[in-house]
Amino acid sequence: MQDEPLLEVRDLHVWFGLRRWGFGHAGVVRAVDGVSFTLRPGEAAAVVGESGSGKSTLAKAILGLNRPAKGQVIFEGKPLDSLKPREMRWYRSQLGYVQQDPYGALPPFMSVRRILGEPLVINKVGSKPEREQRIREALEEVKLTPVEDFLPKFPHMLSGGQQQRVVIARSTIMQPRLLVADEPVSMLDASVRVEILELLQKQQEAHNLLLIYITHDLSTARHFVQRILVMYAAKIVEQASVEQLLDNPLHPYTRALIAAIPEPDPENAATFKDVPPGEPPSLLHPPTGCRFHPRCPAFMKGICDVKEPPDFEPQVGHLVACWLYERGQVES
């Protein structure tokens, strides 16, 4: 596990200017606002956060699909913003991307064969028969067999789960080293979700991929990754291994999140959940200091609302951005 980091995100900021009537700025949405983490090859990590917390924006910045306002994404020691167009092409071939909506992620007018062939054609891989061979292998890997049946099909002829498997096959066909899966199962039925996540996990293990699994669902993250990064209002507030995070959540937001997640248990009906008041802040005008402070049960006036908490590391490998851990103490 002491490999060099494959991906490093350093103080990343992605901002979107909101335009009003085509003139001037109505403000800036700080969709990702100072995010740093490091991941190694073959690691599986989840970014967990609520809707609008900036997860997809972070994913796209890693994929080089949007331009950071500040900070860097560093792949194998090379900052993305220093890559020349040809190197960028190489970088893209090192990436796989699985999106949320499997149907939307597939061009509706292309057959499965063509969909899987496109990355190969674009990256000028092999001869035609070699490409066909790779396409078949990819379909077999995602268990869309018999392959002949699926090759000529169009996306609308497939179920949601099958579509997502085609997306996964496409994202791994270039044999990438980093796979970003942005809510890959949130549009699918519960019964299919696990199947797709298992498939992702298998691919990740088989090809020693660095998997970044983006989700709002802590319960699935728990079963399919080793490391969890919790995102709240454009920042990562806590990162730790699954065991550390679930057994000993440190950040008040993480605690609230874990407390709010139900299990199928009839006892639930008899009790009320303890939920922090209010709603996630607007990213146009985020609160000063800690962004969770208006909702936080442990809020310390004069500290939390004044200065942004940096990452503290009260336990080895367990980072948390909360003033409670300034002196390294760990509450139990």
Partner: peptide, 25 residues
């Protein structure tokens, strides 16, 4: 649409996206 974004992620160029991904749609 996500499939355009995906095509950018696997490296499709501008012309290809316009002619093979947008127009047929």
């Amino acid at each position: 649409s996500p499939y355009i974004e995906a095509s950018r992620a696997y490296g499709a160029g501008n012309l290809r996206i316009i002619l093979l991904y947008m127009v047929p749609r």
